[in-house]
Nucleic acid binder design. Structure first.
Lengths: 114, 114
DNA sequence: GTCATGCATGCCTTGACGGTTATATAACCG
DNA sequence: CGGTTATATAACCGTCAAGGCATGCATGAC
């Protein structure tokens, strides 16, 4: 979950969101972010060391692309919380159910989450 | 996605992970974290203002519990990235396929693994 | 070779943040 | 009422990180 800290930073999340569409060179990112090139390079370094992005050296250019691994990790971390809100939904559903059909006692239609 | 910044901080993630199990008072969190009470209160304030937790006033105690909303939001943000790693898996699968059966050219029977 | 390009690194400043101690507020207990 | 409990807030400090500029280091073009 070290990647989470890296991704949380607003500017880096902009970079990540940009790389989600397609791999980019540093210059392209600089143009899109409206920031100095060193600043972008430093953010890319953080993302690199957190395993969020990988680099492909191509002449003088560096092509950055996302590494799926940390996102899978984030997804795994999020999993137990998913149960939380599905539980909340189920509760709400039961509540609404009991208001609509006050005497419905049977475990009726199950609506699977997502 | 302001909640992401709040959750990214290590101590606050410990708090969130604790609250995932059950709602807690401040004192309980302080005991679990081994930190000063003001420090915990400040983190709780950040989480509160980010919409991550809600408070229930009960005499002198404040019972904190998670609010599912920001986690759903995080899940939604993560969704497009999910497509990324499933795509990677499909690619890897194709690759392994071509190595196992080098002359398999037709898009014939697809045996989906796992 | 020299020059230009693309990027990384070093240094510096500034602002934000996590942690502490001390204090204020509020609710129960006697 | 005074005293205790539970929590928030204030004031302060040390640290760290994000951004800027200047520079170094490769690679390709000439």
């Amino acid at each position: 979950m070290d990647a989470l800290v890296a991704i949380a930073e607003p500017t880096r999340r902009r970079i990540v969101d940009a790389l989600r569409m397609r791999a980019c060179t540093v210059s392209e990112l600089v143009a899109g972010l409206g920031m100095s090139q060193p600043a972008v390079s430093k953010h890319l370094r953080v993302l690199r060391e957190a395993g969020v992005v990988t680099v492909e050296v191509r002449a003088q250019q560096r092509i950055y692309r996302l590494d799926p691994a940390p996102f899978r990790e984030l997804d795994a971390w999020l999993a137990p919380y998913r149960r939380m809100w599905t539980h909340h939904l189920a509760e709400l559903e039961r509540h609404l159910d009991s208001r609509t059909r006050p005497h419905d006692s049977g475990p009726g239609s199950e609506d699977a989450a997502r």
